[in-house]
């Protein structure tokens, strides 16, 4: 800034002086400190949130532990406390039984969901963009959509056997519909201004589809995929309960036959964790891949 002020202050005051408030270096320092304080605040808030989350879980476990122990009205065999469940869990985990079951279930869910994503998004795109196809397919697709997917479990077992095929098919079938319907709505409702802008800038059909229609419909498609994840879990369990040789729900049905409620509860916790982690991962992935899509969560 001005050499004069520097001279004056530099000569008159000791080295520990504070520079004039309007000096740029001082402003920068202030901005730096402000940013640091702001970040600290955000971090502290995040920690506090995490702490509260954990507190909630611990509270829940404490109540669950206390009820079968203190209450005489609850049979501990029907509701074993978490400590008992945990004692059962550790050896099953170490023996590899639980990891094997988790892997089997995950494979089925991922495969079925993958098939549903590919077919659902394609079907949604085609039916929304091609009027003829829309009107031809509408009654059939909506008819099938109205059938609760669980009702197809026995049929699926007859058609695809009790092997992997019937499980994957059921998961794919169930999650296909939410993905298809949301993709359809998203593509149908792409704002006209986007399509017109693309046309004026010389975009052909394929470029419009890939660069404009798909990204514009993406928020809806993602909502459908998220719903699809939840539905796949439901159908996975239904399929495994109806007959399987491995899997988390199979493990639960074995526990049922052996009257081992602790094993059934392990299954429940695993399924809940699955769903939770899958959903969180999905949201994190969206944030990373599509920074412009800020309304996720």
């Amino acid at each position: 800034m001005t050499a004069a002020t520097d001279d004056v202050t530099g000569n008159d005051l000791s080295s520990s002086r504070r520079p004039a408030l309007e000096a740029p270096s001082d402003r920068d320092a202030f901005a730096k400190e402000f940013r640091r304080a702001h970040r600290r605040g955000l971090r502290r808030a995040a920690w506090l949130r995490a702490l509260l989350n954990v507190t909630g879980i611990l509270l829940f476990l404490a109540v669950w532990e206390a009820v079968p122990r203190l209450g005489t009205w609850v049979n501990p065999v029907l509701l074993p406390p978490p400590s008992v469940v945990f004692d059962t869990f550790v050896p099953m985990l170490l023996s590899g039984e639980i990891p094997a079951n988790i892997l089997a279930s995950l494979r089925r869910a991922a495969l079925g969901f993958g098939i549903a994503t590919a077919t659902g998004v394609t079907a949604g795109l085609l039916t929304a963009r091609i009027g003829l196809l829309h009107h031809v397919s509408e009654p059939i697709l909506h008819g099938f959509r109205s059938v609760p997917s669980i009702a197809l479990v026995p049929l699926s077992v007859l058609w695809f056997g009790i092997g992997e095929g019937s499980k994957v098919a059921l998961v794919a079938w169930g999650s296909f519909f939410p993905i298809w319907i949301t993709t359809f709505i998203g593509v149908r409702d792409v704002p006209a201004a986007y399509l017109r802008s693309a046309a004026c800038l010389g975009a052909g059909r394929l470029a419009t589809l890939l660069l404009v229609v798909l990204p514009a419909a993406l928020p809806m498609i993602l909502a459908g995929l998220r719903q699809g994840i939840a539905v796949s879990l439901i159908l996975l369990v239904a399929a495994e309960l109806s007959g399987a040789r491995e899997g988390v729900a199979y493990m639960m049905s074995t526990g049922h036959q052996m009257f081992r409620v602790d094993i059934m509860l392990i299954g429940l916790v695993l399924l809940g964790t699955f769903g939770f982690i899958a959903d969180r991962l999905f949201v994190a992935l969206i944030r990373r891949l599509f920074p412009w899509y800020t309304t996720a969560s």
Partner: peptide, 29 residues
Amino acid sequence: GPDRGVVFQEYALFAWMTARQNVEFGLRM
């Protein structure tokens, strides 16, 4: 066609593209 450019009232910029990518779109075509 690209010989006639159009500017709309609002909300016509592609939300999933940065300003530069939006401007590049016509050239990309």
